[in-house]
Design a protein around this nucleic acid. Sequence first.
DNA 1: TTAATTGTCCGTCATATACA
DNA 2: TGTATATGACGGACAATTAA
Length: 244
Amino acid sequence: MVATIAETDESAESEGVIDSHKRREILSRRPSYRKILNELSSDVPGVPKIEEEKSEEEGTPPNIATMAVPTSIYQTSTGQYIAIAQGGTIQISNPGSDGVQGLQALTMTNSGAPPPGATIVQYAAQSADGTQQFFVPGSQVVVQAATGDMPTYQIRAPTAALPRGVVMAASPGSLHSPQQLAEEATRKRELRLMKNREAAKECRRRKKEYVKCLESRVAMLEVQNKKLIEELETLKDICSPKTD
DNA sequence: TTAATTGTCCGTCATATACA
DNA sequence: TGTATATGACGGACAATTAA
């Protein structure tokens, strides 16, 4: 599939690039949703701020600082925050000023592989063979081996006994053969795609939040406008009473 | 019932932007 | 200046809806 995309890109490069550039010249780039919303929030008290992204080492909220899996914090469609902690504990918090205050906690039992077709964005579990699994979209899992000098990662089908392919196995410094270099390039690409995948999800979430914010602001302004019009009419009546 | 349409979600690519 | 991140654009998959 990837090769097909690459070939298509190459064949359509000459005309596609020109179209793409023209399109991008027309479309002026907007600042990030986070910036816009935070600017709005500084102007309008009622507008919530989009939380700043925190790095793994500094950004974990105080109440969930001991999490084994980084970035395992999600927001539901209802605005709640879900944090997956060690041992399968899932913490749920309602959106508030501090984000993680008032955490609720519940423990879930991890019983084997997820059902086929289940929509699991990301999930961590300790499997029987001592490996840690991170479920990624596309009905695959990234498996981290528990033993060895350095962590190795494999992409597997959730129920498959054999790995589909090793994507992270050796340090760059020890690469020699073209095959190893190719594997390293593949690994880097997979890593980049995985990061971008998560970034896209996060970006869409922020965009939704941004749109919601704008919609609520529109509603608020409409109410305000209506009130002002009514007030104006009242003042008009007072200042110029009808003479029959 | 079925094909067409529509809406939504997701992954990927290209590129602007932020940052060390 | 190179690298990481954010985001617009695009296309595919899938489910729900609609018209014939």
